[in-house]
Write a protein that binds this DNA or RNA. Structure first.
Lengths: 138, 138
DNA sequence: CTTTGTGCAAACGATTTGCAGGATG
DNA sequence: CATCCTGCAAATCGTTTGCACAAAG
């Protein structure tokens, strides 16, 4: 636990971010959860016990973390912006019934003929979004 | 042109939608363009010459068209909801520089080992989003 | 005629901004 | 101690809603 906290501090510093309690809390929370929370869910989680962050600060922390590549946005539903501390390439599954979201290992999908999508297009990255039913809803 | 209009009317009726000038215009506009416009862009296009639709009506028309499966939402950027009259399965390319969006033929990608994503998950559909540079920006 | 759609303006929810005070390096 | 962050409240943006009038079938 203590070691983990030190790691987070080190990571933030390495990226040139000032380490503030709020920023630390946002990143730490995001690292600790498997779902892909919205800004609001993060805010709520942080202020569960005692108020520690304001809404504006959560947004700005997320922005700062995004800018240095520690966090990415995940768009799976209209009007809902989620955040993910896993910035390695991977795909997403979303349950159409309950909305649960789950990561899909990168190796599960493979692109056929990537270079020939169309002459002129330079592909830099891609991701797959899978829709279906999860364990509970299936 | 006339034939095309008749087709649109027929399609709407077949889906059980009342044919109003506004609804016709929204669907017709969406069918005619290759980009994936936002509600606002559609509204702007329709009122280019003379005012024909209100903003609330464009939203409600899009909603109605979605409900009967003639139109789908496309989510590629945070905070931007685009619409697409092509409801056949296909993928999307988005230029990271200029934001241009282009359809990618369904056959360009193939899923490896779909049934074994994870036991318990029932896959119903999926789509690929490709990011990169388009002709002008590459 | 009955039902459904339209337009306006007000309401809404999520995100952003301006600014003064406070913490970080 | 200069710079950057935080928190508050107000502003903004896209979308939705309520309601009276109009149009479609």
């Amino acid at each position: 636990m203590q070691q983990q906290a030190d790691d987070i501090v080190k990571t933030l510093k390495t990226k040139g971010l000032r380490v503030t309690p709020q920023r630390f809390a946002v990143y730490s929370n995001l690292l600790s959860r498997q779902d892909h929370p919205t800004a609001e869910q993060i805010l709520h989680a942080l202020n569960q016990d005692a108020p520690t962050s304001s809404q504006a600060t959560v947004y700005s922390s997320l922005q700062a973390l995004q800018n240095v590549g520690l966090v990415r946005e995940v768009l799976l539903e209209e009007g809902v912006c989620r955040y993910d501390a896993n910035v390695l390439p991977h795909h997403h599954f979303r349950c159409k019934s309950c909305g649960a979201i789950e990561d899909i290992a990168w190796e599960k999908f493979q692109c056929i003929d990537l270079q020939q999508l169309r002459p002129g297009l330079k592909v830099e990255e891609y991701e797959v979004t899978v829709h279906g039913q999860c364990d509970h809803c299936g």
